[in-house]
């Protein structure tokens, strides 16, 4: 009841301060940039992982053909079929080509694709690599085989790939800043003291802040997701997940603010935390660089989970496990924050 009262008051207050409008403005700017400034896919260049398993002189002639034929696309030579498949799993933009001698002694070109490429693109790839061969090799027979990798996922457009970054940023970081700003506003005005001499509990106070940030975060998350992902997001699980991520971010914000009595002093710590949390986006965008230390930053599973929810067939187990972890973390951090606030609120 007191929580509800405080929560409603905080909600009312939040619409009378400019922080909420910063959050909404950021969301709108993001939407505009994504929809109208950037193309759906940012790059058109793709890596092609290549393996040529042939004896000389066939090896050299195929290699020369490849090097001359592939202009825009970048060829990366690997030394095993497995390496190609792993590379493709990591780099969802790439394709692979495996050239080998079949049992009948024929030179066989096996294109290794992600599985979502259009037939047109497949044809284009075929032409690029082996178009010329037909003229050079009289006994050429089109025996190209196409292998789709098992367990491969559809590829998201770049626009959709960036969406999780915004959602994490919005919930985990903006939330952190804004809740700090609100708490310091209360400390500054001294209204926290006024609450301390009522039967309301400090937990009511902090939970109200958590609730207010949740409402704000969910509103802006939903706004951005609808605008960018439209029908391709799984909204139910996404909202559940975003709630967990939001609570986690706000809880960190509450804990941080408990150590300071004004925003300026808290700023440097907030920046450090945000910087660390933001580090995971590197591994998110460059899967080949994902050391354990980065994957352990909570925002990494957040990004991966949200991306998961943009696929047609999301791995819900992973998403819910991550959400559960975030909630547990949020609860723990909240308890710590509560303990800190009880001790330091009024000094």
């Amino acid at each position: 009841m007191k929580f509800l009262t405080t929560f409603l008051k905080d909600l009312k207050l939040s619409f009378r301060t400019f922080y909420i409008y910063i959050e909404i403005a950021l969301a709108v700017i993001f939407i505009l940039v994504m929809l109208f400034v950037l193309p759906e896919n940012f790059t058109t260049e793709h890596d092609i992982y290549t393996l040529i398993e042939l004896e000389e002189p066939a090896y050299s002639s195929v290699r020369t053909l490849f090097d001359e034929g592939a202009e825009a696309d970048r060829l990366i030579y690997l030394d095993s079929r497995e390496a190609i498949e792993n590379a493709l799993l990591e780099d969802r933009e790439a394709a692979g080509i495996h050239v080998f001698q079949s049992a009948e002694g024929r030179i066989t070109y096996d294109f290794v694709l992600q599985g979502y490429e259009s037939p047109k693109l497949v044809e284009l790839l075929k032409q690029t690599f082996i178009g010329d061969l037909t003229t050079y090799m009289p006994d050429y027979e089109d025996q190209v085989s196409i292998t789709t990798l098992g367990g491969a996922r559809e590829k998201l457009s770049d626009r959709l790939t960036v969406l999780p970054v915004f959602l994490v940023l919005n919930s985990a970081f903006t939330g952190l800043f804004i809740v700090a700003a609100y708490i310091f506003m209360d400390k500054d005005e001294g209204t926290i003291k006024a609450l301390t001499v009522t039967p309301a509990k400090i937990s009511d106070y902090l939970l109200a802040k958590l609730g207010m940030m949740l409402v704000m975060g969910m509103l802006t998350s939903l706004l951005v997701t609808v605008a960018i992902a439209r029908g391709s997001a799984h909204y139910g699980p996404l909202m559940i997940f975003m709630a967990a991520a939001n609570l986690f971010g706000t809880a960190i914000g509450l804990l941080l603010t408990s150590f300071y009595d004004d925003l300026m002093k808290a700023m440097s710590s907030i920046f450090v935390v945000v910087f660390v949390l933001a580090f995971s986006t590197i591994s998110y965008f460059m899967p080949s660089f994902s050391p354990l230390i980065i994957r352990m930053i909570p925002t990494y599973p957040m990004l991966v989970s949200i991306r998961e929810l943009l696929y047609q067939q999301p791995n819900l187990t992973y998403v819910y496990a991550t959400a559960g972890g975030l909630l547990a973390g949020a609860a723990l951090i909240f308890m710590l924050a509560l303990y800190r606030f009880k001790k330091t609120l009024t000094v």
Binding site: K2, T5, K9, R16, G190, A194, T198, P199, A200
Partner: peptide
């Protein structure tokens, strides 16, 4: 120490509900 963003009446209305 009152909420600057709330009106005088809102300040009191909010506070009374805490008792």
């Amino acid at each position: 120490n009152v909420y600057g963003k709330l009106t005088a009446l809102e300040n009191l209305e909010f506070y009374r509900k805490l008792f």
